[in-house]
Design a protein around this nucleic acid. Structure first.
Length: 615
RNA sequence: GCCACCUUAGCUCAGUGGUAGAGCAAUGGUUUUGUAAACCAUCGGCCGUCGGUUCAAUCCCGACAGGUGGCUCCA
């Protein structure tokens, strides 16, 4: 079978699994009202409303048992067609109000996709001529469903599946609609593939950054401080600082200079920039003394725009490139907070360049170069979305400017040989973006870096420079972040590396374990520690009255790159045999080398940001 | 914010309508160790918070807080 055919086959299996789920639910809860039951990545779901009753994960056992019974019956999926009006009366008789609503949308608009429909008309009774003549139904045994298909031939042919979870959803995603329950299942062609997928989930759970954050002592979230406000321990702060240091180094290499803005501002700044009404998640701060109102900064661009505006600028001074790694505050809804990936205090390696129109392309290229460099060093693959505007009126600024900006972005992306696709409707209100996604070790895709073009804020803040003819010109603004939110990036990076950080970011690079507690051993080990620290390595000593095995194990659990054991042998020879963390080691053979040479090698690795041990 | 579920020692987790236990960690001692867990002892908990039911609540009920999984949202 070709790949396409296999894909179609899997799609039909998953879709049929959704119907079998609904069949089982209907047998167990005859009052069930059904919404939609589509195929999704790795499986399927069905939206179900049981009225006062609720499905919980404890019910999965008996639902799955009932599904197995349906499969065992091995009845065919039979396709039939009904004229639309007949279908509506069928759904009404069957007491399936959600299906009635879908059918009415089909009748009126020929589609059931909520975002393609006029929101006011959604689900209203359709009158007049119908957009469709017939609609198709699929029946398997005692269950019939409005459905476009396709399905497998019989219920016995659905492959391997497992119910995963249940969550609450609003009917058609609208929070004024009734809330239903969405039961998710995963489904694959064979039990083996299902097993592999479930194993991958187990692996992902082991790498969960919240779990590793606890185990490796990287960060905490304190109830007293508040949800979404993570605190970083000394170890976690090393990670942050090393990544930030590298990001700033890269930015400096393409001409960015550090600036600084306070974390609080008059709200007037955001009223003028146009963000105030567009940004409901801001933190307002009541005034201390005056009648002014203040807010915590939810972003940086309006602030640094004031630095640009603070003195007259010549075309010769352009571009002005400002960078600032700083924390901003966004009042995200409580249900959306998640470990480090979604927080209320986020730190961005942000920058803004104020450029002449003829400098836009070069600026974008410089930025893309350092973004590529960053993720190459981090060993993460990039993919790119060009986030462009759609026809809606959600955007500020001149349409022609937008079009030329979008053309520029596309040209640069092409010339930089980026693997990109265009996403309409994903632009910021002030301009189009290049959104850069990285793939982690488990193949999951995350947005981190972003480059954005902005003609709106320069307009709003009346930014200008003087050109060679003495005329005032308006600059464009290029926003960029390489790591994006450091907190979110760390969540991705911790999971990507499973906490096994390369030497240059490892919170602790060398653990020195003493063989015993005799005075000369401890003194020697302390001298080595001082030597390592003196050249800038992050090292600690473990001279506890424990067995060597136990101290080695402690170092392993903390995923420390290098562990050295010091005893009489090392004192006599001046040589060490470092234990290298397995993922870093290029061979299994232990290598013995002079103490000084060892420290210098680790230092060189740390400086060159290598991924593997050079020992 | 909405829906479902969860919250017991620093961590991971048992457990019962009659106010609690293990392992690890920590601390003290014995051992002086050669590359993933030596031994003994001790400390540690208002069983998330506040109310209710009950003679009695960590356990049952409710509210709140925090978390988990979804929905929605992410300029």
């Amino acid at each position: 079978m070709s790949d396409n055919k296999l894909q179609d086959q899997l799609y039909a299996m998953r879709h049929s699994s959704a119907h079998i789920l609904a069949t089982a639910v209907q047998r167990l809860w005859p009052q069930a009202k059904f919404g939609v039951g589509p195929v999704v990545e790795n499986g399927f779901y069905y939206d179900i409303d049981l009225g006062a009753d609720k499905i919980s994960e404890e019910d999965f056992g008996r639902i799955e048992a009932e599904m197995q019974a349906v499969i065992k019956d091995n009845v065919p999926f039979e396709r039939t067609e009904k004229p639309i009006d007949e279908a509506i009366s069928w759904a009404t008789d069957a007491k399936q109000p959600y299906k009635v609503e879908l059918l009415n949308d089909l009748r009126r608009a020929g589609t059931t996709i909520a975002k393609d429909l006029n929101a006011d008309e959604l689900g209203t009774i359709a009158s007049g001529d119908s957009q469709v003549e017939n609609v198709s139904f699929y029946r398997n045994g005692d269950f019939t469903d409005l459905c476009r298909g396709p399905h497998v031939e019989t219920t016995g042919r659905v492959g391997a599946f497992k119910l995963q979870r249940v969550g609450g959803v609003y009917w058609r995603g609208k929070d004024t609609n009734p809330q239903m329950q969405r039961v998710y299942g995963v489904a694959f062609t064979t039990p083996k593939e299902l097993r592999q997928y479930l194993d991958m989930l187990v692996e992902a759970r082991k790498r969960d950054h919240r779990k590793l954050g606890q185990e490796l002592d990287l960060f905490i979230i304190s109830d007293l401080v508040g949800p979404g406000l993570p605190l970083f321990t000394p170890r976690g702060t090393v990670l942050r600082n090393e990544l930030i240091k590298y990001s700033e180094e890269l930015q400096r290499s393409v001409g960015y200079e550090a600036v600084w803005a306070p974390h609080m501002t008059r709200t007037d700044l955001y009223k003028k920039s146009g963000h105030y009404d567009k940004y409901p998640e801001r933190f307002d701060v009541s005034s201390v003394e005056s009648d002014d109102t203040f807010m915590l900064k939810p972003m940086n661009c309006p602030h640094v725009a004031q630095i640009f505006a603070s003195r007259p600028r010549s075309y010769r001074d352009m571009p002005q490139r400002y960078m600032e790694t700083t924390t901003m505050y966004r009042d995200e809804k409580s249900g959306e907070l998640h470990g480090l990936s979604r927080v209320r205090a986020l730190t961005q390696d942000d920058s803004h360049a104020f450029v002449r129109p003829d400098q836009i392309e070069a600026e974008m290229r410089g930025i893309l170069a350092i973004v590529k460099q960053m993720y190459k060093t981090l060993d993460m693959a990039l993919s790119v979305d060009l986030s462009f505007r759609d026809d809606s009126d959600n955007y500020f600024g001149d349409l022609e400017l937008w079009q030329s900006a979008q053309a520029t972005l596309e040209k640069v992306a092409q010339e930089e040989a980026l693997d990109f696709k265009i996403e309409l409707g994903e632009a910021a209100f002030y301009g189009p973006k290049i959104d850069i996604y990285v793939a982690d070790a488990l193949g999951r895709r995350w947005q981190c870096a972003t480059v954005q073009l902005d003609f709106v804020q320069p307009e709003r803040f009346e930014l200008e420079y003087t050109d060679e003819n003495g005329d005032k010109q308006r600059p464009a603004m290029v926003h960029k972040a390489i790591l994006g939110s450091i907190e979110r990036f760390l969540s991705v990076y911790i999971e990507h590396t499973a906490g096994k950080f390369p030497v240059w970011v490892a919170p602790e690079q060398i653990r020195i374990v003493t063989l015993n507690q005799e005075d000369d051993t401890v003194t020697f080990a302390e001298q080595v520690l001082q030597q390592a620290k003196a050249i800038g390595l992050r090292a600690t000593i473990d001279n506890a009255a424990e067995s060597v095995g136990k101290k080695i194990r402690a170092a392993e659990l903390f995923k420390i790159p290098y562990t050295i054991v010091l005893g009489q042998k090392e004192m006599d020879s001046g040589e060490v045999t470092p234990r290298i963390r397995k993922d870093l080691a290029v061979s299994d053979d232990a290598k013995t080398l002079g103490l000084e040479a060892f420290l210098q090698t680790v230092l060189a690795e740390s400086r060159s940001r290598t991924l593997e041990s050079t020992l």
